Simulated assay, not measured.
Amino acid sequence: MLRMPGCLLKLTRVLQSHKPWALFILIVGFVSFAYIKLYWGIWEDPKSRGPTHGLSAEINCAHYVPSPLNIAAGPSPSTGNVFFVETSEQTSPSYLFSCSVESAARTHPAARVVVLMKGLAKGNASLPKHWAFSLLSCFPNVEIQPLDLTELFSGTPLAQWFLQPQHHQEPDFLPVLSDACRIVLMWKFGGIYLDTDFIVLRNLQNLTNA
């Protein structure tokens, strides 16, 4: 008959005599392990990850967008521009990014929903092969275009500010640049500017240059 080693026997007796502390240590250990796994999952290099599962790069519009947009029914009160801007070099839109643009396209069927992305190479006729671009291309009122910052700021009151190189070295330049793009887009074209984490639930026809 096998006998339990002495060290395990002593450990078992200690755990039985200190059940609350043993339970506390187990909980702390489990939470620490889960935190470490979550931390490395968040900060893992995206390039080292495998392909995103669930959606293929080629989207069947009839399946994922079953209700066609009623563009031909005539203009709605919300005709105009709805802008989204990505000022980083990111060219792989997240689920939230895609849902935000899709929600704007659905609630503003007669408006141009323009997505400007700095990471897209200017003059490249084809978008990167990504499920988000394939999905958003199902909406005829969505336009995904490269963001040329020099061209965007040209001829605006913020042109001189943008051309000053010292601003580009500031630690908070990216969020400031996004705010500046919002101002310039409204100044040049008018319409509505939305952040890429907004989900639009209703038509924003009552907003002008916002």
Rank of each mutant, 00 (worst) to 15 (best):
M1N: 06
C7R: 11
L8G: 05
T12Y: 10
R13A: 11
L15S: 14
Q16C: 09
S17K: 14
K19H: 10
L23N: 05
V28Q: 14
G29A: 10
G29I: 07
K37G: 08
G41L: 07
I42K: 15
W43M: 10
K47C: 05
P51V: 09
T52I: 14
H53Q: 12
A57P: 05
E58T: 13
E58S: 12
I59L: 08
C61Q: 12
H63M: 10
H63K: 11
P66F: 10
S67Y: 07
G74M: 06
P75W: 08
N81D: 03
V82F: 04
F84D: 02
E89D: 10
Q90C: 02
S92W: 13
Y95G: 03
F97G: 00
C99A: 15
C99E: 15
V101N: 00
T107F: 02
T107N: 11
H108W: 04
A111L: 00
A111I: 00
R112E: 08
V113R: 02
V114Q: 01
V114G: 00
G119S: 04
K122G: 13
N124R: 15
S126N: 13
S126V: 15
W131V: 05
W131A: 07
A132S: 15
S137R: 12
P140L: 01
E143C: 02
I144H: 06
E151V: 08
L152N: 06
A159K: 07
Q160N: 04
Q164F: 08
P165K: 09
H167N: 10
P171L: 14
F173A: 06
D179P: 00
A180M: 14
W187P: 00
G190Q: 03
L194Y: 03
D195P: 01
D197M: 02
D197Q: 03
F198V: 11
I199N: 03
I199E: 05
V200K: 00
N203H: 03
L204D: 01
Q205K: 11
N206V: 04
